[in-house]
Write a protein that binds this DNA or RNA. Structure first.
Length: 433
RNA sequence: GUGGCCGUAGCUCAGUUGGUCAGAGCACCUGGUUGUGGUCCAGGAUGUCGCGGGUUCGAAUCCCGUCGGUCACCCCA
């Protein structure tokens, strides 16, 4: 039988990778909760119509479409080349807007929500971009103030800092669609379509040589030098200067080339950028989207961060914890590895194992035949167990702590659970000297 | 959707102009007979050389196709 390969752009997560994913998600979650956001989630697939609301053409092409196959009309629909009735969610915002609109009357205002889960885009995979990925969405609905923008950005920065990233390694580039629109008007672009074309050009800044940028701008009907001059003047304005005064200025940089696509942003837009990687996170204000989804007019601001790029960045900077730290942080390190050199104590190993587990401890034993204590200790430390429990007799054990100090103590088996629990409570790394 | 590069054991790769080229290291498994931890010995398993077709006396090696990976473009909600 031919080998069945995983679908393009997906990942198989073996224990170490799965531990990394859990570590990342738990860190996302912890930061969001600490900042006062509540976790929500929606379905991983929605009706295709939901995604068609705000954008008819391009986006639909990169949706993973789905249908139940139970309804002949669905099958017919596909056969005729029309979009399938469902689509795997490519982003969370439409779901969020739908959920909020449904219950807007009963929800507190402002509403602070975050979500973590898988998303899907039928794109061609490349560095930092896969077809299935995890995303962390943080949104603040019902607060039009600039402070709300700042809070969202603060949450994002807090996460970066908690990973050990510094403002030398990545920065938050901020811009404002309204301000951009005003400047574009000043250079003579009044109607929306012309401005959209101009934004497309501005997005190219840094990706194409200056002369090409100049030419593209001319084709879009404006002069890039004039635009830049106006931006410089604007940059000195109180509006730009005073913005986000509460945030650590090291992280924040105003950047006129941040336009965040052309989608639904209305005011502040921002991206977390790092050298050599595509955007680590992105977000902004979307004040008319909830209304678009049938809800009451509701100002909103939020951002999303994918797991792919941030993982690459942490990997590159050496900030991804090693296996032991990962297991430690997600609480997956064995508390005890039970062994004995004496085959006659095999049954006792099992009963001790049972007692430890019953007490809520993570306990393991070898599944190998050897009674070679050296090998078993090696196995224990390879599994990053905190302690090895070496049974000496039916009543007594030696507990060897598998940290650098390697302290070892004789403990009656009857007191083993209490002994291990007391040390697990302290700091998990063994007895204090 | 378009283009560049790549595809040999679980992993990283070697394989010279087609002719002992099916290999190395790491990892893994089993021991080292009475017991102290990642770097020690000794053994061991593992590959339709991505897949399919073609050229040839002979293909991991050359050609075509295909699938997958990767990087870039488009796009980035």
């Amino acid at each position: 039988m031919a080998k069945i390969q995983p679908p393009k752009g997906t990942r198989d997560l073996y224990p170490l990778e799965a531990a990394r994913r859990r570590w990342l998600c738990e860190r996302w979650r912890a930061v969001a909760i600490r900042h006062g956001f509540e976790e929500v989630d929606g379905p991983t697939f929605e009706t295709t119509d939901l995604y068609a609301v705000k954008s008819g053409e391009g986006i639909l092409g990169e949706l993973f479409q789905a249908f139940s196959g139970k309804d002949p009309r669905e099958v017919e629909q596909i056969r005729e080349g029309r979009p399938a009735p469902y689509a795997l969610r490519p982003e969370f915002t439409p779901t969020l807007a739908r959920m909020y609109a449904q219950k807007a009357r009963t929800l507190p205002a402002p509403c602070r929500w975050f979500q973590i889960g898988p998303f899907f885009r039928a794109e061609r995979p490349q560095r930092g971009r896969l077809r299935e990925f995890l995303q962390w969405n943080v949104d603040l609905l019902g607060d039009a103030s600039e402070r709300a923008d700042a809070e969202i950005i603060a949450c994002c920065i807090a996460f970066l800092e908690s990973c050990g990233l510094t403002s030398e390694q990545c920065t938050v580039r901020v811009c404002d669609r309204d301000v951009l629109a005003e400047v574009l008007e000043e250079v003579g672009l009044r109607d929306e379509r012309a401005q959209e074309a101009a934004l497309r050009v501005l997005d190219k800044r840094g990706k194409v040589p200056p002369d090409v940028l100049h030419r593209l701008a001319s084709e879009a009907g404006f002069d890039i030098e004039q635009f830049d001059a106006l931006c410089i003047k604007r940059s000195r304005s109180a509006d730009v200067q005073g913005r986000f005064a509460d945030l650590d200025p090291h992280w924040i940089r105003w950047d006129w080339s941040i336009v965040r696509g052309l989608a639904y942003y209305t005011g502040t837009v921002f991206e977390v950028v790092a050298d050599g990687e595509r955007a680590v996170a992105g977000g902004g204000r979307y004040d008319n989207l909830i209304e678009l989804f049938g809800g009451p007019p509701t100002p909103a601001v939020g951002f999303a961060m994918g797991d792919v790029v941030i993982s690459l960045l942490l990997q590159d900077k050496g900030l991804m914890p090693d296996e032991k730290e990962l297991l430690d942080e997600i609480g997956a390190r064995p508390d005890a590895f039970v062994l004995s050199a004496d085959p006659a104590l095999d049954d006792r190993v099992n009963s001790v194992l049972r007692d430890l587990r019953h007490a809520g401890l993570h306990a393991r034993r070898t599944s190998r035949q050897t009674r070679n204590v050296g090998k078993l200790l090696k196995e224990a430390s390879q599994q990053h167990a905190k302690a090895a429990v070496i049974l000496e007799s039916l009543e007594e054990a030696s507990v060897k702590w598998l940290d650098a100090a390697g302290k070892q103590e004789r403990v009656p088996i009857a007191e083993l659970v209490a002994y291990l629990l007391s040390h697990a409570r302290s700091d998990g790394s063994g007895p204090r000297a």
